[in-house]
Computed example of a mutant assay.
Amino acid sequence: MPSLRSRALSAALIAVGRRRRLGSAEAVRARVAQSARRPASHLPPRSLGRVAEISRTFVGAWPVYDVSPLGSEPASQVLYVHGGGYIGELVRPHWALIRTLVTRAGARVVVPAYVLAPRGTADRTVPVAADLLSGLIEGGGAGGTVLIGDSAGAGLALAAAQRLRDRTGAQPSRIVLMSPWLDVTMSHPDQAGLEAADPLLSRPGLREAGRLYAGTLAVEDPLVSPLRGSFGGLAPLTVFTGTRDVLSTDSRELLRRARAAGTEVEFHEEAGLPHGYPLLPVPEGRAARERIVELVRAAADL
Results as ranks from 00 to 15, higher is better:
R7T: 08
L13C: 08
G17R: 11
R19P: 04
A25P: 02
R29Q: 12
V32Y: 00
S41N: 06
E53G: 11
A61Y: 03
D66T: 15
P69T: 06
G71W: 05
V78T: 10
L79P: 12
G88D: 03
G88C: 05
L90S: 00
R92W: 00
A105T: 03
A105W: 04
R108Y: 01
R108N: 01
V111K: 08
T121R: 15
A122I: 11
R124V: 10
V126W: 13
P127K: 12
L132M: 10
G135E: 12
A142M: 05
T145M: 04
A154R: 00
A157T: 01
D166A: 12
G169D: 01
S179D: 03
S187L: 05
A192S: 00
L194P: 00
E195G: 01
D198A: 11
L200A: 05
P204N: 00
G205C: 08
G215M: 04
G215R: 01
D221P: 01
G229L: 04
S230Y: 04
G232Y: 02
G242S: 06
T249K: 04
S251V: 08
R256D: 12
A260G: 09
V265Q: 12
L273I: 09
P281M: 11
V282W: 08
G285C: 13
R286S: 14
A288V: 11
A288H: 11
E294S: 15
V296G: 11
A299C: 12
D301Q: 14
